[in-house]
Design a protein around this nucleic acid. Structure first.
Lengths: 325, 325
DNA sequence: TTGTAGGCGTTATCAC
DNA sequence: GTGATAACGCCTACAA
């Protein structure tokens, strides 16, 4: 219709500067009139690139993941890429099968969460030859690039904060560590930081749960029964912390007078509750943004390394000096 | 490698019953050994179907949308389809451009939120010839299938609940109605239900906000200053309601003794706060599931109609009899 | 039941 | 600067 070959149309669309201005405008006009849009499948088949990045998250609506996803989408869009999202529900098998699907779909790169996976998954990843990275974890030594906070260090800092307030008896409502190396790292970060000052969490002071408020309440109750009762409770995520704080109020436990409660991940609710909650704030949007840029850099063959994303303790009213007894 | 033609491999993969058992196992074995996966681009190019459904939501992490997305993904996976998610941030232009991108990507169907859109978007949708539907709204008359609750009716029921408790002076913290026909329908549902019993919200009793707790607090403060002070406040979403209830507590307003506060959308937090919040619970996962099945049915050429998704009032402690004055 | 071959809409490699 | 034309990997008549 424009009186040119398909090759020229392709040039107009992909490398407009390589074509004469006259043709360019003529072709663009026709494209406009026809409402023509390039066929992504044909393009992918021919160029062996889809312009899509796959990402597999345990869940899509959790505070930190949600922020990372938003940021990632924006960063990818800025470089003309699309994000294909999948959800593993903390199930390694599902994660693997979702990865297969995304690869079948021809994603140019893959963003995963965490760094521990089955041998089968590992070998699949090494076979497929597309770049991938681990997000929400950090390990400078890792052969595959990591983009995330150092979970253990974040939690150690939280322990330091509480120890400096005089706390010596600790409890922890950890997020389930099964299939979750970030949660395990956070728990270990607490343990190690305590060990450094000669402290430890007694067995009955360490409980594990998923991530809803009801679970936080229930587990907080359980820790309350421990003797001696801890003066500081560290929660593995935001919802568990919210549950613990709400249950403390319901049980008439004075926070932070009798007991300090802290969390991990800073969602709006943490600061809006009657007793705002001390927590670890991870720059999750940076995780998403940097992960996007890193995986695109890898695709373009640039050398990339692991990047640690900053996190900080946000001190609020839920943590305070140890009770004088 | 299996000593068969590519056509046979294709049959083994797509219509295994049409191939002899011997060949089937032989081919499958080789597929396994090779780690071969079908190339989705080639498949799409050849069959003119990508097996992907696009969905554009205002946001991905909001309670009701998040649940719908999860359910949709599962329902699509059960029928061998992939969900491509995009986010419009309540911006009609962005929604349109995301739709274009998804269509370029070759999605077989589209799930949209709401039913009002620009003429340009409308005409684009009618041109592209791929099935699409409106979710989270219901309109039996609509030419394009709808899958969602009847926002207006849900809110009317809430008004009826409050009226039956004796309330006559109402305030509303509506979700911004700009670019949001669901929010507008909810607001109108309130208005109409009130009008039916000869009541109305005074101008200073109706405020609009987005959807975070801080905003709920701020707007609640504003309504508190209204004279006469309303005895019942209806919030347009869950976060606004949470903010209102928290601010009421902070301001020393007895809920529901002095004032009833209700919300829309039932997230876990609503029932876990010190004063659990009366709200409208929409079966959002049904929205997602039914939307997925409906759009797939449309793709397969089956006749489909609009489907109303159930919603119900969940009465909790935040609503009670009007104060005796 | 299985193989042959054309075509899907681009991109990329050559010529010109 | 532009046009032919051969891939790209699969699906699907059609033929055997």
């Amino acid at each position: 219709m424009a009186g040119v070959s398909t090759a020229t149309v392709s040039r107009v669309v992909n490398r407009p500067e390589s074509v004469s201005e006259e043709l360019r405008t003529r072709v663009n006009l026709v494209i406009e009139q026809l409402g023509w849009v390039p066929n992504a499948a044909a393009r992918a088949l021919s160029s062996n690139r889809t312009g899509a990045i796959g990402a597999i998250f345990p869940a899509l609506a959790l505070g930190d993941f949600a922020r990372a996803i938003d940021a990632m989408q924006d960063a990818l869009a800025a470089r003309n890429h699309l994000l294909l999202l999948a959800r593993s529900q903390y199930d390694p098998d599902l994660e693997f099968s979702q990865a297969r699907k995304l690869v079948e779909r021809g994603v140019d790169g893959l963003v995963l969460v965490g760094s521990t996976r089955s041998a089968a998954f590992e070998s699949f990843l090494s076979r497929i030859e597309i770049p991938y990275l681990n997000s929400f974890v950090f390990d400078a030594e890792s052969p595959v690039p990591c983009v995330g906070p150092d979970n253990a260090v974040s939690m150690s800092e939280m322990v330091d904060h509480l120890v400096s307030l005089g706390h010596r008896r600790f409890g922890m409502i950890a997020q389930t560590t099964r299939n979750n190396d970030r949660a395990a790292a956070r728990r270990d970060g607490v343990r190690n930081a305590l060990a450094r000052v000669g402290l430890a969490i007694p067995p009955q002071g360490l409980v594990e749960g998923e991530w809803d408020i009801a679970e936080g309440r229930k587990l907080f109750r359980r820790i309350l029964d421990a003797t001696p009762r801890p003066t500081a409770i560290i929660c593995g995520n935001s919802m568990l912390a919210v549950g613990a704080v709400l249950e403390a109020a319901a049980a008439g436990v004075d926070v932070p007078g009798e007991m300090s409660i802290v969390g991990y991940d800073d969602i709006e609710l943490m600061s809006e509750l009657p007793i705002p909650i001390t927590t670890v704030r991870v720059a999750s949007d940076d995780v998403g943004r940097v992960a996007a840029d890193t995986v695109l850099d890898m695709i373009e063959g640039r050398a990339v390394g692991s990047q640690r994303i900053r996190s900080q303790i946000v001190v609020r009213a839920s943590s305070g000096p140890v009770p004088s007894d």
